[in-house]
């Protein structure tokens, strides 16, 4: 069984998380994570990234945007 390098492992992380790898490839990848703590940490941080981004990029819509939208739609719908 050939071993994965860190480069191979990182290139497969998306498919690994999506559960799309074959059993054989997944086993080799997990063996690499077990032996390589930087890759294990990398995987944790890669997994955490979407959640952190969702949190960071969530914005409350300003009240004035809502008011402008309502005014705009009322004007436009009258024309329609």
């Amino acid at each position: 069984m050939s071993h994965h390098t860190c480069k191979d492992s990182i290139s497969l992380m998306l498919e690994y998380i999506d559960g799309e790898l074959t059993q054989d490839v997944r086993a080799r990848l997990e063996a690499h994570f077990g032996d390589c703590s930087p890759c294990e940490e990398f995987l944790k941080s890669y997994r955490a990234t979407p959640t952190l981004c969702r949190k960071a990029l969530a914005k409350k819509m300003p009240g004035e945007v809502a008011t402008k939208l309502t005014d705009f739609l009322r004007r436009e719908l009258k024309k329609a």
């Binding site: 860190c6 480069k7 191979d8 990182i10 930087p38 940490e41 990398f42």
Partner: peptide, 16 residues
Amino acid sequence: PTFNDRGSLVDEVSDF
């Protein structure tokens, strides 16, 4: 990420 010639991770990985 950056790797050496043998494909090993060169970067330090921070703890999230």
